[in-house]
């Protein structure tokens, strides 16, 4: 299982298409930095099919005032949880 890290907004590029194309059925996706814009309700269409495997970093949501605005399918983790996700993954692939 690979962990994918995405730090770009799905509203400013098509990068999420490339991420989804490279994700296996068990792979997980963590949104960080501007990537957390993808956790908004309206972004759900861009990151479909990731039920239980879509995470967003709490600190980056908080600093942007987005913590209460996440779609239901997004699992919020703090930076300690970020490390835990990397521990569990075979490797981490960054997208930027």
């Amino acid at each position: 299982m690979n962990l994918h890290l995405l730090n770009r907004s799905p509203f400013s590029s098509r990068i999420h298409d490339d991420v989804l194309n490279a994700m296996g059925p068990e792979d997980q996706l963590l949104l960080i930095e501007d990537g957390v814009n993808g956790a908004l309700d309206n972004a759900e269409q861009h990151l479909a099919g990731l039920e239980g495997r879509l995470f967003a970093l709490r600190e980056d949501l908080e600093s942007r005032g987005l913590l209460g605005r996440c779609a239901e399918n997004v699992i919020v983790v703090d930076v300690d949880g970020f490390v835990a996700l990397t521990e569990a993954a075979d490797k981490t692939v960054s997208w930027f």
Partner: peptide
């Protein structure tokens, strides 16, 4: 997917 799985590390 198989390619990114097969390699032990990925640098992007």
């Amino acid at each position: 997917v198989a390619l990114t799985t097969a390699f032990s590390r990925v640098l992007s």
